[in-house]
Simulated scan of single mutants.
Amino acid sequence: MSTIENFQFINSPLRLFHGDDSLRRLGAELDRLGCKRAVIFSGPFLEGVLLERIRAAVGDRLAGIYTGTLAHSPIPSVIEAADELRRLEADAVVAVGGGSVIVTSRAAAILLAEGTDVRSLCTVRDGSGGLKSPKLMAPKLPQFVVPTTPATASVKAGSALFDPETGDRLALFDPKTRAQAVFYDPTMLMSAPRSLVINASINTFATAVEGLVSRNGNPIADALLMHSIRLSGSNIRKLPTDDTAQRRGDLALAAVLCGQGTDHTGAGITTVLGHAIGARHEVDNGLVNAVVLPYVLRFNADSAPAGLSKVAAAMSLTQTGPGVLDAVLGETRRILSEAGAPTRLRDLKVPSEHLQEIAFASMGDWFLGGNPRKVTDAEQIYTLLDEAW
């Protein structure tokens, strides 16, 4: 008797508004949840026409504006943001910006609601090496997201914070902090520097590739990730010379597809190294991903033949069997090169003497569990880093 594959695909609801009229829906979405004191979160870039555009969309529901979010969401800035939500008696957060703004907004809502030390709220490894996230039961402020870059964070429920004192990366997870609605407005998307859009889109591309070759997955998640690769790969290589609102909008949708797909598949070493290097060395995660992805693909090749074939199909490559790896590596390098991405960690000013420390720090990242080839010790990571340096 034949059998079929067992899997579950349980997706969270997503209210997404895309295009010229998208921001006009923000007020109605706030009203839908009865929100009357919304606080806008952003970085210092939000001023002039952009600020007035968001103000108009929020209308008389605006309780205040916080512009103190920082790259990589360091813990002190998140605590400050939570204090600001408390002071303003907020009943909603409107996050305007890239991944760090979106993550800071979510994490601040968690700290505000739970009222305890951030480390007690984090995902940790249990005695068997598995991951355990505490159940954060307090109600959370609803999140409304207006991205300015193609950030996969827009549709996620996890929040990764950086501890500048220890160098640790802490993870908070609460499904109640998923965005109630996401608004892709062309004016906001065009406001970000092209370099930030390229870096964020490289992160999307690399993460989608990792999702397809991960240990997990199912046909529906695969479909999301394969189309994410098509959209991100075809657009980031053209963005340096042909930057349009349509292209940025497609890259934003690629980030949504990647964010939803990797909720089911996880990621792997490329994502882990982006985390480990990005905050420590003040480098955009996407640039780290661009450097290490080809090396990670080769590292994982023997453990992920089916995944590599899916990536090849997403890239419209025809090679099969033993030739798939070289074909995928060649196309990956072409896409990243045309996007203007770096090729070596030394190009990112990562000191070679820090590679060992980065390797050890990477071993504690929860995303390592999704890597198709099991990583047994930090020396494997160090060897890969040394090759990429």
Rank of each mutant, 00 (worst) to 15 (best):
V39P: 11
G129I: 02
G307T: 01
L384G: 03
S133Q: 06
L385W: 04
F17C: 09
T104E: 06
S214P: 02
C122S: 12
V124N: 12
H18F: 14
A304F: 02
R37L: 04
H72W: 06
H264G: 04
P193D: 08
C258D: 12
V350M: 05
V256P: 02
A245I: 06
T262C: 09
P305T: 02
A378G: 13
A306L: 07
V197L: 10
K36S: 14
E114G: 11
F9N: 12
R87T: 07
P134Y: 00
T376P: 02
I236Q: 04
L345A: 04
I236H: 07
S154G: 09
A107R: 00
A28D: 13
D174T: 14
A339Y: 08
R24K: 15
I4V: 14
D365R: 00
T320A: 13
G249C: 09
T383M: 11
L121D: 05
G330H: 05
K140T: 11
F41I: 09
V213F: 11
D31C: 07
A276D: 01
G59E: 10
S191V: 05
M363C: 08
L287I: 01
N218P: 08
L308D: 02
T177M: 12
S316R: 13
A171C: 10
A113Q: 06
L293N: 03
S73K: 02
V96P: 09
N216I: 05
R248G: 08
T241Y: 11
I202M: 15
S191Q: 05
N199Y: 13
A200V: 07
T270W: 00
A153C: 07
D284H: 13
R169W: 02
T318K: 14
T152N: 00
A157Y: 03
L62C: 10
L225P: 09
A267F: 01
I40P: 06
L16Y: 12
G19P: 03
A57Y: 06
T383I: 06
N216C: 12
L62P: 11
D326L: 12
R106G: 01
L26N: 02
G307C: 03
V292A: 02
Q380E: 15
R169V: 07
G59K: 07
E89L: 13
I269V: 14
G286H: 00
I358K: 00
I110G: 05
N199F: 14
G274Q: 01
V49E: 14
L30K: 03
S228F: 04
I65R: 10
P351F: 09
G43M: 09
N289T: 00
S100E: 12
L131R: 15
S105D: 05
A361S: 15
L16I: 10
G129V: 02
A192S: 15
N203Q: 07
D302T: 15
A304E: 01
V155G: 00
E47W: 06
D302I: 07
P294R: 00
R125E: 11
N289V: 00
F360C: 12
P13T: 13
P193S: 07
S228T: 09
L141Y: 12
A313V: 08
F41D: 10
T262S: 04
D242P: 06
D250Y: 13
